[in-house]
Design a protein around this nucleic acid. Structure first.
Length: 483
RNA sequence: GGUGGAGUCGCCUAGUGGCCGAGGGCGCACGCCUCGAAAGCGUGUGAGGGGGCAACCCCUCCGUGGGUUCAAAUCCCACCUCCACCGCCA
């Protein structure tokens, strides 16, 4: 959302932004409504001044004068009511249009209607050279019994999935890895609600333009957010922050839900485009300073690149075109990661600067060093979104015998293992995990030492549950997991 | 889910129909005092919109939205949030 005064004073810049971003908005109608609303407001102010002063007179007046004033007020009240109704109708329509106004894109953005106009600005690494026929992530996961697709779809319909065994640990490792890196960069880790009200969705810019993308819980007037950003903006909406608390840096973690309404039939196979996923999101609230915002943009982008480089994943950074970046963005850079099965890059990260567009919607302000109140600037970027990145990881790290090597950076989160090979059907199953958990650190390393070995002595010597009796609890349902 | 209580200017609080857009304290800013500081004293200190070259003026906002009234922070209704207790529950 843009400032009404700015729109009034820079109609051409706004119209140009509407054009290059391909937004359906009649700026002239908006200007007209703005004009009408201001005139109505002025009339209303005048009428109210009159009402106030004669009410004051009423208190001191005699009976005859009071009767006069009552009659005068009845008339005045009719006028006020009419003006208020007109103003309400005008403002409502005006607000609808204001919510559609786009951020003016930065001058360096390629101009084009969609992502075909995006420009690659750098590439890191190289595509893996397998020397064998690699599988796609679905084949690999099914082969190792690392996921359920058909069965999950019985439960939840299309695009559903269930990760199993080591894939669960690997997914968690990716998130832990991202959280560690961001914590090291002074981001505050925060887990936020996915179940949100309408207001924060309007605040971030999801509503009204992308309402159809969002799951609605109609019984309770709640929605399932597609990103932690919604809650992160919402946390501070309506606030006036002290400049001393800025910049606020969050590593927000949440389940994310997307209807993918506009993508019916696309990427229906596997883990690339799912309705429910897990994401660690980088989010920054900073002062309304273009230079500072630019620095944070670079910082967020760099954090994501560092994460991917730590994972050794081939990727490219893209400068997004005006038509691809969305209404609220000042600048957007996607990072696309290499998927061997596709033979190309796919978007895994999206880094955006919104300047005060989002803060204005959410009324997220701060008091600056000079005491003036201003809308803050916000930025966000993916840190890790799984299972899409998980799919990239297993595809890039698969071995000829359908195991998955573990990149160095993730080993600390996987008990030191350098190879994942356990499907549930194997002798040494995902119970490794249960063992590691039950040995709580001291014995857990025993299991780690046996990683990759077909028989684990820890498992043999101290079974958690009898594997033969059908009614016996499975290892994963024992102990601390039971609640 | 039930019952009871509460939401006022960054924080605490006064305020049951007009003298209240709102008093006091804390905090904060500036000044005096001081070698410097503390204490003390003085002044100032919410947001949004509109008008004016300017000094300044006008309107709106006491959780949100309605209503009653000539007039609402104050009375009525609905909703939201918080607190306490009961019930249920991971």
């Amino acid at each position: 959302m843009l400032d009404r005064r700015f729109i009034r004073e820079n109609p051409d810049a706004v119209k140009e932004a509407v054009r290059v971003k391909g937004i359906g908005l009649d700026v002239d109608e908006l200007l007209r409504l703005d004009q009408v609303a201001r005139e109505l407001q002025r009339e209303l102010d005048d009428a109210q001044t009159l009402r106030k002063s004669s009410s004051k007179e009423f208190a001191r007046a005699g009976e005859a004068r009071r009767a006069e004033l009552r009659a005068q007020h009845a008339e005045l009240e009719r006028q006020l009511r009419k003006l208020r109704e007109q103003l309400a109708a005008t403002s409502e329509r005006l607000q609808e249009l204001l919510l559609l106004t786009p951020m003016i894109p930065w001058p360096g953005a390629p101009v084009g209607p969609d992502d075909s106009a995006n420009v690659t600005i750098r590439t890191w690494g190289t595509a893996p050279d397998f020397g064998f026929q690699p599988l796609d992530h679905v084949e690999l996961l099914e082969k190792r019994d690392w996921a359920e697709f058909a069965r999950a779809r019985k439960v939840s319909g299309e695009r559903a999935y269930a990760l199993k065994g080591d894939m669960v640990w690997l997914e968690r490792a990716l998130h832990s890895y991202a959280l560690s890196l961001l914590a090291g960069r002074d981001f505050t880790l925060i887990s936020v609600p996915s179940l949100v009200r309408e207001e924060p969705l309007t605040g971030t810019g999801q509503f009204p333009a992308h309402r159809e993308e969002t799951y609605a819980i109609t019984a309770d007037d709640l929605y399932l957010a597609g990103t932690a950003e919604v809650a992160l903006v919402g946390l501070h909406s309506g606030e006036i922050l002290d400049f001393k608390t800025l910049p606020i840096r969050y590593a927000g973690i949440s389940p994310c839900f997307r209807r993918e309404a506009g993508s019916a039939g696309r990427d229906v196979r596997g883990l690339l485009r799912v309705h429910q996923f897990e994401k660690v999101e980088q989010f920054v609230i900073c002062a309304a300073d273009d230079g500072e915002s630019d620095r944070w943009h670079a910082e967020l982008l760099s954090a994501a690149e560092t994460l991917l480089q730590g994972l050794g994943l081939h990727h490219e950074v893209v400068e997004c075109a005006t038509g691809d970046m969305g209404a609220g963005k000042y600048r957007m850079n996607d990072i696309n990661t290499w998927f061997p099965s596709l033979g190309r890059f796919r978007e895994t990260h999206s880094c955006s600067s919104l300047h005060d567009w989002q803060a204005r919607r959410a009324s997220l302000r701060y008091r600056g060093t000079d005491g003036t109140v201003r809308f803050a600037y916000t930025l966000n970027n993916t840190a890790i979104a799984t299972p899409r990145l998980l799919a990239a990881l297993v595809e890039n790290y698969q071995t000829e015998d359908q195991r998955v090597r573990v990149p160095e950076a993730l080993r600390p989160y996987l008990g030191g293992r350098d190879l994942l090979l356990h499907g549930l059907g194997g002798r040494h199953t995902a119970r490794w995990c249960a063992n590691a958990a039950s040995h709580a650190g001291n014995r857990g390393r025993l299991c780690a030492r046996h990683a990759g070995v077909v028989r684990c002595e820890a498992w043999n010597s101290k079974p958690i549950a009898s594997p033969k009796s059908p009614g016996a609890p499975s290892p994963r349902s024992t102990g601390a997991m039971s609640q």
